[in-house]
Design a protein around this nucleic acid. Sequence first.
RNA 1: GUGGAAUUAGCUCAGUUGGUUAGAGUGCCAGGUUGUGGCCCUGGAGGUCAUGGGUUCGACUCCCAUAUUCCACCCCA
Length: 436
Amino acid sequence: MNLNAPRGTKDILPEEAERRRALERTFAEVCERYGFGEIRVPTFEHTELFVRGVGDASDIVRKEMYTFLDKGDRSLTLRPEGTAGVARAYIEQGMSSWPAPVKLWYNMNMFRYEKMQKGRYREFWQLGCEIFGSACPQADAQLIGMLVTFFDDLGLDEVNLEINSIGCPACRAAYHQALRDYYAPKLKDMCDDCHERFEKNPLRMLDCKEAYCHSLAEEAPAQLDYLCDDCKEHFDKVKSYLSMMEIPYNLNPRLVRGLDYYTRTVFEFVSSHVGTQGTICGGGRYDGLIREIGNIDVPGVGFALGVERLLLELDAQGIPFGKAARPDLYIASFPSTAANALDLAQSLIRSGLKVETDVMDRSLKAQFKAADRMEAHYVLVLGDTEVSLSRGKLRRLSDGSEQDVPLTAVGTLLHDYRKKLASAKENDRQSTLFKL
RNA sequence: GUGGAAUUAGCUCAGUUGGUUAGAGUGCCAGGUUGUGGCCCUGGAGGUCAUGGGUUCGACUCCCAUAUUCCACCCCA
């Protein structure tokens, strides 16, 4: 029997799970501050939704979907991204009649059949946001501002924002024509993929990596020169709002998106640490998506963050994040007092403390080692004497100091110690803020 | 999907041109005070050498297939 997890999937063990939870908590909290509500949609949808929504020209739909027939012969697909499902829910649940704009966030796993690489998995998680109902550039800019806040709250640095506008269907048609005019005479020397791109989506020829094709991109007409007046105005406003919020960005005319639904603003946050899969976050506007899958015109803009890539980036930058709390107390006992230890731990834990105790009849020495390893703040040795006197020595592991206390006072004492540590930490935080 | 590299103890890795019983560090467990952690010392557990075939008197070592991972391309988060 093959005991490996399937290619591209992995087990998430307590240490990483802890980090993920902290990350997700921070994200949820930032979303809340910006007025977003959480949405959860099904793990699989009708295949048709992704074909129409993501686009049948995209690589995701053409070769990366986990599609299967269920027992009722329905073609279903594990979601390869979040926006199509959320848009479907928006339509199905009649959110167009909610007060606009509708602002949603999600935390969902995605599935794509891709060849494995660092930061690229077959099951991976995305944190994302969508704003439905606003065609205004403020919405684009606020989403980006929100990401900057999120990265800031994480303590993350050195991720660069790249933006571009890929226009609307009207100006894109003009641009595609300009690209075809430019490439047509040179096409015979270009690679096979580019021949296909020439027909289906000449935009993609711009980031071909073949030496010759790549060299041609330099001189190719730029999308930005072909934006219609409305798109140009929209993009100019996005840029000016970013400047006003003092959010630095690189204008990248080569930036295109792999999903067909994007229009106008597209952006990425890119890391230099994660390797080739350096895009931590990608997003943009998708004014045509809702019309494509529903029958109403609703503009939208959103982004998706790769959780695994974010974790890699946090590691690379050495940012301590989401470590499990240290136990307030370790109760060491002997076989004759194990039940008393269990009972004391039970009531202290119920009072809100984190308390560990031995459940293996181990030697006192081994129990101390365990307490030390898990970095418990205090150890209480509970032997026959302590039980009969209802008093014990509370030993602080950091300096070995001991104090003799009634067992009934231990809870209060530890709660006080906890408060003291918390306020010291808060003072610390305040003083660093003050320095800045 | 194309090309390349790797896989030996829980983890990080040695392992000679194919030759007895496959090693180290670290981690884990125990002992070194019969009621006290960190340092140190001693001992122990833990490996079907990724899996399945093949070559050979003999394979961790050579060959093939499969699985998984990594790198480049591709793609994207």
